[in-house]
Simulated scan of single mutants.
Amino acid sequence: MTTWSWDPSLYSGSAAYYARGRAAYPQALADAVAAELELDGSGRLLDVGCGPGSLTLLLSGKVEEAVGLDADPDMLGEAARRASEAGIRTCRWVHRRAEELPADLGEFRLVTFAQSFHWLDRPRVAAAVHGMLAAGGACAHVHATTHQGAGDSAPPYDAITDLVRRHLGSVRRAGQGVLPGGTASGETEIYRAAGFRGPRRLEIPGAVVTRDVDDVVAAIFSLSSSAPHLFGGRLAEFETELRELLHEASPDGTFREQLREIAVDVWRP
């Protein structure tokens, strides 16, 4: 197995699980970004690596048009379904890799990366985004952990990690490759090399959430490191063992956990 490079199977089979298993971004996040950038319902948003539209939909009411871009068509299908259910008609969904930007998409008042930047050719994408911002625009990089929290009543995540390793091996999987050292960090230097100034950091407290067994199972399958396709013919066996582990930890099937705070780094061109 090779070390990691992007391939289309990264989140294969995860889209519906992602929408349920990841905790929703709070309204306070949208309000903080809107206040910082003085969003007034005009201008356009580009959410890069939008997944099922988790942030795109939340911010859509702050701009005239929101464009969600993702390389996974199933994620975009889930985003479009959620937008339709919510009656949101100001979103546009674009099936492209971020490395194809600017892709004739025009100028944007705000470009966002929410748990997506580390998967990209970061210098290339940052440089492209810098050139796509309208006068007075900004790029917002959202740091969040929405698939799990902590606390005495949280799911047994250490045991879940061990279970995944028993099925998939000790080295973290991602698509057709592996990530022995985890995902990339050091984005500050990359943004500055692309010509951005900052960042100015916004902080939003983490929420306490209550989740059931189905929510936690969805959270595990929402991860690139335990996406459904990785288990092959043993998917049902893994899910059975996962559910048994969760029911043993909480016979009533509920968990309560504290999510980490969300940080937003606002970069100006």
Rank of each mutant, 00 (worst) to 15 (best):
E36D: 15
R166C: 00
G175D: 01
V213S: 08
G233N: 11
M1G: 13
L29G: 11
G49E: 04
Q148I: 01
L46K: 13
A35M: 09
T112L: 10
A150K: 12
K62W: 07
H247Q: 13
A138I: 10
W6G: 09
R81Y: 09
V209I: 15
D212Y: 07
G53L: 03
S250R: 10
I262C: 05
P155N: 10
P102F: 02
T56Y: 05
R89G: 12
T210D: 12
A218K: 02
C91S: 13
Y11H: 14
T3V: 09
A23E: 11
L246T: 14
Y25C: 06
F108H: 00
V266W: 01
L235I: 08
G169E: 04
M132S: 03
E100V: 05
D252H: 14
R201E: 14
T161R: 13
A154N: 00
D40Y: 08
D162Y: 03
R165D: 11
T210I: 06
R166K: 03
A134H: 05
G43T: 06
A35F: 08
F113Q: 00
H118V: 06
W267H: 03
A207W: 07
T145L: 13
F117A: 13
A71L: 02
A263W: 05
A207G: 05
T146W: 03
R201V: 14
L110M: 04
L69H: 11
G206V: 04
A207I: 03
A159N: 08
A140C: 15
D152V: 12
L55S: 04
R81M: 08
L242Q: 07
A236N: 06
A98Q: 08
P251H: 10
A135V: 10
S224A: 15
L55R: 07
E187F: 08
L110A: 02
V48R: 00
A227V: 09
G232C: 07
S250H: 12
L223Y: 06
E244V: 08
W119I: 08
Y25S: 11
A19F: 04
S54K: 01
W4S: 04
D158L: 12
D70P: 06
A154I: 00
E239N: 13
L163C: 05
R243D: 07
A35V: 08
E78W: 00
V171Q: 06
S42A: 15
I220Q: 14
H95K: 11
P73F: 03
S226E: 02
S226W: 00
R192P: 00
L101S: 12
E107S: 14
S224H: 14
S185K: 11
W6C: 02
G233E: 15
T146N: 11
G13L: 02
G137H: 00
P155L: 12
G53I: 02
D162E: 15
P102T: 02
A154W: 00
P155H: 10
